[in-house]
């Protein structure tokens, strides 16, 4: 091969690489970040959107272990220094279910189900336990008095009370002694146009998107294949739906 040929090949390879990178940067928000658009800080949360998640339990290889690890890493819960294991926070947990009659067994991650009519919101005396217009249920730590009534009311045992003073918290996840906390659907990431950490940890089994948008992937999947709510009998219209349970 002549020097000119070698030069031409390297040149074209270089052009190709730069073009691929440019294309990746341009397309990435659409491909990798799916349908979540970043919300400018000054823009109010809109009720036109209702964020939700769909978990396909059959496709979850580890029953949700990776999701739990990603959540811990994102929000920094679960390794409180003085609390015992029943006092440690647990935003998301892996529940293994074995049906007594058939022996059918499966595991699934259970976290705040982001109910439309959330019992935790109803019972909170101060309004600290609140639902955003876009359906995300979370706790305003500045107003939470730590009465734990929301924990009594939550049908999913999704909430944790912080039993001790915390240090070195994650910047995106304010937490504090004497307040209650739970999965906030990674509100910090969602507002930045990202998926919740657990969804990115198990992309093969989890979908995140706008339940109000009939064209979103999650809406289409739910319309076509359906999705089950845990304790649907309570009529809470949860934002988290499951397939395969």
């Amino acid at each position: 091969m002549s020097n000119i040929d070698s030069y031409r090949r390297n040149f074209l390879t270089g052009i190709g690489a730069v073009s691929t990178m440019a294309a990746a940067v341009t397309i990435a928000p659409g491909v990798f970040l799916r349908e979540v658009q970043a919300k400018p800080a000054e823009k109010a949360v809109s009720s036109k959107v209702r964020w939700g998640m769909l978990v396909d339990v059959n496709k979850l290889k580890d029953g949700g272990d990776a999701c739990i690890e990603a959540c811990k890493k994102e929000h920094g819960w679960g390794d409180e220094e003085h609390s015992n294991n029943k006092q440690d926070a647990q935003w998301i947990r892996k529940v293994t279910v074995k049906e007594k009659l058939t022996g059918h067994e499966f595991s699934l991650p259970v976290m705040c189900q982001h109910c439309d009519t959330a019992p935790c919101v109803d019972v909170c005396p101060t309004g600290a336990s609140m639902k955003r217009a876009d359906g995300i249920v979370q706790v305003n730590k500045h107003v939470c008095i730590g009465c734990r009534y929301c924990m009594m009311a939550c049908p999913y045992k999704a909430r944790s009370f912080i039993h001790e003073t915390l240090t070195d918290q994650k910047p995106g996840t304010p937490r504090g002694k004497g307040t209650v906390e739970s999965c906030n659907m990674c509100v910090n990431r969602v507002d930045a146009g990202l998926n919740p950490a657990c969804v990115d940890a198990a992309p093969e089994a989890m979908l995140f998107g706008d339940l109000n948008d009939p064209e979103s992937k999650i809406s289409k999947a739910l319309k076509e294949f359906g999705g089950t709510q845990i304790r649907a009998d309570l009529g809470l219209n949860t934002g988290i739906r499951y397939q395969g349970i």
């Binding site: 919101v121 109803d122 909170c124 005396p125 101060t126 309004g127």
Partner: peptide
């Protein structure tokens, strides 16, 4: 900050 839907 009072939520009157709460019995508390």
């Amino acid at each position: 900050h009072l939520n009157f839907k709460s019995i508390f």
